[in-house]
Every structure is written in C-alpha cells, then in structure tokens.
Computed example of a mutant assay.
Amino acid sequence: MNKKCKIGMINFLNGLIPDYHFENTLFTKTYGLPAELNKLLREGDLDISPVSSMEYILNSSNYSILPGLCISAFKEVQTVGVFSNLAPTEWDRKKIYLSGASLTSKYLLKVICKKYLKVDPIFIEQKIEIADKESFEQIIKKYDGVLLIGDRVFEFKNNFQWQFYDLARMWFEATELPFVFALWLVRNNFIENNCEIISKVHYLQLEAIIEGLSHLEEVYEKNSKNLTFKEFSNFLENIMNYQLSPFELLGLKKFSEDLIELRMISDFEGFHFFDSKLQP
C-alpha cells in the first residue's frame, strides 16, 4: 500500500448510511455535493468517490466501477424531482431552473422531457457555487419549475405548496426500470500499485452500508434532518438502494441508450469494473 487514499462522501441524507463508522487510517474523507465530488474526482483531487452516474457515462475511460455499490431508486426517489405549479405536459417552452448540485438529474430530466413527454422546456442552469445557498423565494419568482436534489427537496416541501414530480417515478412509468443516480468510481490511474488499498476500501464501504442499515436508530439520533423516524427509516430502507445488481445496470444501460438516441452524447464505452479482492 503506497499512499493514503482520498475518498469522497456525499453530503446528503442518502450519504449517511455509507458513512456509518466508515473510518480507517488508510484513507481521508472529503464531503461535498455530487457535482463537487464529480469535479474533484475528475481532476484527481480524489481517488475514489460516489459520483453522478452521468460522470461515468461521460468519462468512462478514466474510471472503473467498484462492484455492488450505487445509489439508485425503483419507482420513486423522493429527493430528486421538479417542483412546479404546471403539469409536466405543460412544460413546453416554460422556464425550468436546474440545480447546480446535480449532473445526472439534469440529463435525466432532459431525456424524460424530450423522449417521453415530448415537451421542450427552456432550461436555465444554476451555478454550482450557489447550489445550496440560493433562496427559494428568488427562484419561484423567476421560473415555472425548479429541479432540486437531496436535502433541499425536504426544505422546499416544508415551505412551499408547489407540486413535486419525482424523476425516478417518471423514469419508471416510462421504462419500468430503476434509475441509478450515483456509482462508486476509482480513477484508473490510481489503480496501479494500489489494488490492495482499493479492495480494502471497497470492503469497508460495503460493510458500512450493511451496518448502517442495521443501526438506523443510532444514525437517526445524530442526523434526523427534521424528519420523523418513520420518514427517515422508510427513506433509507425502502426508497434508497445501495446495491448495484444487473437490474440496476439495465436501467443505466437504457439511460445511456436514450442519451445516444437523443444525440446528447456520441457514444458510451460500457461498464468497466475494478477487480476487487474483498478482504476484512
């Protein structure tokens, strides 16, 4: 093991479970929004991180996937969607504000609108620097809808009466498939001479998720996020999925095919996995 590994951690409610007692002298942790972690991993400031699945689709030659790990949802996700007073079929030429915290969700919304709803909204992208700071009052005065992800969805629901359109639900209604929002990736140029530490981190991350889901009351006591325990546990146990199986990969493959069909990307090299030697 030649160096201490730099690991990214998602700073959202769904990041609490992977972070459960996830500590070791082999690595350091950096917390951030998905879009921030994308940039840090892409530029080499992180070695391993959960990042937007779109980051992998766009730059798959740079990364390998850690097997068995993802953040995905089947039928609904509750924390990724569009708030609007208009029905989705009325979004044509309407202004939709896109959260700067997201990458995958922006592409997913565009695919849903273009391919499945046959509407063409005007998308305005928020700068990442203000992704978790801009006031909702300013946003709702200017736009017909707003795409939000993560904990800010709960904040918006608690303060405004706009209808929430869940992107995982919209994707499922169109495809009957789950949607993968994030993958755990390792930079390919970190793999050489570091296979042992990567395998160890992989094992510890899988273990943290299993243990975190088994100790939800402890996790809740430290990080309730203003939810009741019933809401908190339902979200993490029944809505979130952290296991990357062939079924989740089918959903991700379908998403990549839609992106190519709509000419939003030119091609996709497919899935490449790190050959992990799991060890305690």
Rank of each mutant, 00 (worst) to 15 (best):
Q205A: 13
L109I: 05
M264F: 14
Y242F: 15
E137R: 10
L37F: 10
Y20S: 15
I57R: 03
L249V: 12
F235S: 02
N2M: 05
E211T: 09
S84Q: 11
F156V: 07
L216Q: 00
P88L: 08
I130C: 09
A73C: 14
D144S: 14
T104G: 05
I191A: 05
Q78P: 02
L244E: 01
I265E: 01
I112P: 00
N158F: 03
G270I: 11
H21L: 12
Q161A: 10
N241P: 05
L117W: 14
L103V: 05
V219E: 02
F27T: 01
F164C: 06
Q205M: 14
C195H: 06
L183A: 09
S276W: 04
N238A: 01
I122Y: 14
G68K: 12
N188V: 06
E43W: 09
L147K: 01
F181P: 02
A131M: 08
A208P: 08
F123R: 04
E155F: 12
S135L: 10
E155Q: 09
L278E: 13
K6I: 05
S276V: 10
I140G: 02
I71C: 07
K94L: 08
H21M: 11
I96A: 07
D267N: 15
L66M: 06
G68A: 04
K95D: 11
N59Q: 10
N59M: 02
N14F: 15
A174T: 14
L69V: 14
I260Q: 10
L147G: 01
D151E: 12
K157F: 05
W91L: 13
F22D: 02
W184P: 04
E196P: 00
N234A: 00
L206M: 10
L177V: 08
G32P: 05
S61H: 10
G81I: 03
